[in-house]
Structures are given as structure tokens and as C-alpha cells.
Simulated assay, not measured.
Amino acid sequence: MADTSTQDRDNIWFARAMGVLPHIMLFLGLLAAWEIAVRTGIITSIIIPPPSKIVAAIWMLYVSQGTIYKHFFITFTEAVVGFGIGAGVAISLAVASALSERFKTYVSPYAIVLNVTPGIALTPIIIAWFGFGMGSKIALAAIISFFPIFVNTLSGLLQRDEDREELFRSLGATHFKVFLNLRVPSALPLMFAGLKIGLTTALIGAVVAEFTQATDGVGVLMSRFSFQLNMAASLATLLSMTLIGLILFYSMEFLDDRIVFWRRETRRAAASRAKARRWEASYARKLVMV
């Protein structure tokens, strides 16, 4: 039985590897064509450098000189802190709006006005208010990330299952318990969808503010390389921005997978087994005490 299970796992991994292999081959083929096109003069190297120079620039930024780490950490911090502020305000207002129709009537127009106002247009005002330091970048990240989190959370909280609510009320649940134990868990999938969007837009807000006026950050570093026409280093810095976005997105994806576990059969089964083990351990301790 164990050998059969191990063989099945090996077959699954082999099938996954074979599924990824065509994508890797395509990617390597595109890089090879890009390199050849630049070296043969089909593409001007000043505008689009070859992949080999970009790899060399990445090595320079991360290994030989290590100049990227300070800027990477600053941009990452601006995006995360701004997202945290924007998400906290958005979720609080969404919960209050779901609980009170009158409050929602007053808040929704302002949220819409904030959303339709271009974030780039707000940048000079935000910098004038908060200065040239990290405060202005965090503020713009919070403002841009606010709306998708607010809308998704509110939409999830306003979705109602009358049959389930009737069942809760028949068991003596209060309005608050129905909201907390039924409507909030039901809203979590939509809320996490908004959080994923808000986290990536927070990074956009931080970088846009850095492009406008800053002394440190990945956006500043990319602007410096672009002004120097060092396109290889500029593209390497752009890939660093992509790396920040991937780290943020998959961190939220990890939390989504752990918190909203009931949407996935494997995670639901794992949670059920863990709960069963805890119950068995608790029952065994009670037997020992008796």
C-alpha cells in the first residue's frame, strides 16, 4: 500500500513536470531569439538590451554591489504599511456599512469619489501634505488600495442566504451572532479577492509616488538608470518590482488558502483531520485523568 501511494505521488510529480516543461522551453526559446535579434542588430541594444546584459545587471544589483536591498526594503515597507492602513480603514467602513444602511448611504458616495479620482493626480497634493519621506508614499498606497478592498468586503457582507439565517435564528442566534458566524465567513472569499487587488495596487501607489519625488526606493533607482540610458539595469530593477509584487500577492494567496480553507477540498480534509486529532488527544487526556 505504501509503495503504491509513493508511486502515485511520483506519477503526479512527473505529470506536473511534463506539464511545465513546454512553458520552460517556450520561455528559453524566446530569450534565445531575443538575444540573437539584439546581437545581429535587428533590435537596437540601446533601447532593448539583450537578456545576457540584464542578467549581468541583476548580478550587479544583488551580488557584486548589492545596491538593490536598501531600495527593495523601502518600497516593500511603503507598500505593506500603506496596504495595512488602507485595508484597516476599508474593512472597518465596509463592516459599518453592512450593519447600517444609513451609514452606507453617507459613506458610499465619498468612496466612489475617491476611486474615480486618478491616483497620479493626487500625488503632488499628497507629497505637499506628507512631505518627501516615506509618509507620502504610504499615504498614496493606502488611498489607492482602499476602494477594491472596501467594495469587495461590502459586497460579500451584503450577500445574504435567507435559509441559513433562518436556521441560525431558529437556534436562538442573535443578529450579531448571525453576522459574525454566518455573513462574515461567507464574505471572506470576496474580501480576500479585494485584499489581493489592494495589495498589488498599494505597490503601484508607492512606486508612482517614488517616481514623482523620492530619494530612495526601487522606483527612484529605476528612474536613475533610465536617465543614464542604462536600460539593462533599469529592466533589472523593473524585475525587482515584479518580485516585490509576487511576494506580496503569494503571501496573501497563502493566507487565503489557510483562512478560507473550506473552498478547497484538500485543505478542508486536512483541517478536518487536524480537528479530529485534537479531539482524540483531548479525549485521551480526559481518560488518563479519570
Rank of each mutant, 00 (worst) to 15 (best):
G194F: 02
Q228A: 10
G198F: 04
L171W: 05
F76K: 02
A15Q: 10
N115A: 06
A276G: 14
V184G: 04
L180Q: 03
T212H: 14
A173H: 03
R169F: 00
Y69I: 08
F147L: 01
S234P: 00
L199M: 14
R183C: 08
E166Q: 11
L31P: 00
H23I: 00
K70S: 15
P49R: 01
D3S: 06
F179K: 00
A142Q: 02
S52D: 03
D161A: 10
L229M: 13
S251K: 02
I259Y: 11
D163M: 04
R268M: 12
Q7D: 13
E253A: 15
M191Q: 04
I68L: 11
I125A: 12
R267W: 07
L21S: 10
P22Q: 06
E280A: 15
L61M: 11
R16E: 11
L182N: 04
M18H: 10
A209M: 08
V290H: 11
A270G: 09
R16S: 09
Y62K: 08
V288E: 15
L221A: 13
L93P: 02
L188P: 06
G82M: 06
I54S: 03
T266Y: 13
Y69R: 10
F73L: 15
G86T: 07
L203W: 09
N230A: 11
R169V: 07
F146N: 01
S155C: 07
L167P: 06
V288F: 00
P124T: 08
M60K: 09
S100D: 02
Y69S: 12
I48Q: 04
L114I: 07
H23T: 05
A111M: 11
I244M: 09
W129R: 05
M252P: 08
S223D: 12
R267H: 13
L182I: 06
I120P: 01
L199K: 01
G198L: 03
L28C: 13
R264I: 10
R224S: 04
M241T: 11
P51R: 05
A209H: 05
L229C: 05
A276T: 13
P22M: 06
E165H: 03
M18G: 09
S170T: 13
H23V: 01
D216T: 12
T44H: 14
L99F: 06
G205W: 05
L235C: 09
I127Y: 01
A276F: 00
F73Y: 03
L190F: 15
E253I: 06
T200C: 09
G119W: 03
L122Y: 09
I48L: 12
V55A: 15
I197K: 02
L221E: 05
F103W: 10
V81Y: 06
Q213I: 12
G172R: 14
L243F: 15
W262G: 00
I12E: 15
I43H: 12
L199W: 02
L229N: 10
Q228R: 14
F14S: 05
G41V: 11
A187N: 07
I54F: 01
I138N: 03
F168C: 13
R9C: 10
F76Q: 05
S251Q: 05
I36G: 00
L99I: 11
D256K: 01
P49K: 01
A142Y: 03
L99D: 02
I144E: 01
F150S: 01
I259Q: 05
